[in-house]
Computed example of a mutant assay.
Amino acid sequence: MDTYDMPKSNRPRIAEKPPLPLPRVPLGNHSQTLEHHPSTPTRQLPREPAQTPPPKYTPTPPIPDPIISGYLEKSTTEEGGRGWVKKYVEVAEGKFRFYNSREEKMDAVAEIVLGNAFVSVQSKRQIRVDSSNGVRVFRAASEALAYRWFCVIARHSKIVPTGECWCKKLSGSKKIFEERHLRLSADGRLSWYKSDSEDAQQRGFIQVRGEGTSINPELQTELWVQTKERQYQFQMVDREETSRWFGIVSWHSHRLPMEQIAVSETAVKVGKT
């Protein structure tokens, strides 16, 4: 007889399977088992407070280029120091413009694109701008004003390389190496002193523009500058410093000397080394 044809009282009892455990749900820093019973409603988990969305990112605006305008004196020659003419000058948008006056700004006398130009301080108040359009020298009313003009122009252009360091220079008369403080200025003038103080007395100088420069092949820490009169030898502290100085001196030596500042060996006082 089939089991389902038996009376209910005679049917065998079948063991009921226990309910499967519910998964553990994290509540804060603890875990708790949710127990469910058909007759009881499911326990609701507490909702976490809504997080405040992060503030909207605002990119930093680009730094604008500096600008400057005002009156400067323009040299009538490329060397400066002969004749000067007052001009109204402005530096903005990567360009150097000068006019006959502020009222005549609509008619620019000249415009220099500063991207590939070189700027340097030729003297205390004179600013020199070398570009593909030629060389122009301007003079400010004071050293402080010339420095401000130089800083703005340099932001748009390139700066002429200069350098300072301690080295050992071969004395022309004693034939021995002596400690000297070496300075290469923006006009290509290489000078040396016994001290690095501002009021140190200059012991000598040469104009390296148009002259030859090289490194001693047998002693890689020795820089040579060859003029028409003699060879100057400077010993640096290591090969890296010698290589750096060779780079900046070579940059000047491949350029023609400025007429007013070109210096020959005879200009140095006898006995100064």
Score class of each variant (00 low, 15 high):
D2S: 14
T3I: 15
T3V: 09
M6C: 06
P7H: 05
K8S: 15
N10V: 10
N10I: 13
P12W: 04
R13P: 00
R13N: 09
A15H: 10
E16V: 10
P18N: 14
P19C: 02
R24D: 06
R24C: 12
V25E: 10
P26I: 10
L27F: 09
G28P: 06
N29F: 14
H30C: 14
S31V: 13
H36I: 08
S39K: 08
S39R: 08
P41V: 10
R43L: 10
R47K: 12
P49T: 12
A50C: 06
Q51Y: 08
P53I: 00
P53R: 07
P53G: 11
P54Q: 02
P61S: 04
P62S: 12
I63T: 09
T77E: 13
T77H: 03
E78R: 09
G80A: 05
G81I: 01
G81Q: 06
G83P: 00
G83T: 13
W84T: 08
V89C: 07
V91M: 06
V91N: 01
F96S: 01
F98C: 05
Y99E: 04
N100C: 06
R102C: 05
M106L: 09
D107Q: 12
V109P: 00
I112A: 00
V113D: 13
G115E: 11
N116F: 10
N116H: 09
A117T: 07
Q126G: 06
I127Y: 02
R128K: 14
N133Y: 08
N133K: 15
N133A: 13
V135L: 11
V135M: 09
V137Q: 01
A144Q: 14
R148M: 08
W149Y: 07
V152T: 15
H156G: 00
S157V: 03
P161Q: 05
T162M: 08
E164C: 12
C165P: 01
L170W: 06
S171E: 02
S173M: 02
S173G: 04
I176S: 13
F177L: 13
F177V: 06
E178C: 13
E179T: 09
E179Y: 07
R180G: 00
R183N: 05
A186G: 14
D187P: 01
G188S: 05
R189K: 12
Y193H: 11
K194E: 10
S195F: 10
S195H: 10
D196Q: 07
S197F: 13
R203L: 13
G204A: 04
F205P: 00
V208H: 01
V208T: 01
G210C: 11
G212P: 00
G212E: 09
I215N: 00
E229L: 10
R230K: 15
R230I: 04
F234W: 12
M236G: 04
M236S: 02
D238W: 07
D238M: 11
E240W: 09
E240V: 11
E240Q: 07
E241W: 01
R244N: 15
R244H: 11
R244E: 14
F246W: 15
S253P: 03
H254Y: 04
L256K: 14
L256C: 03
M258C: 04
I261L: 08
V263F: 02
A267P: 00
G271N: 11
T273A: 04
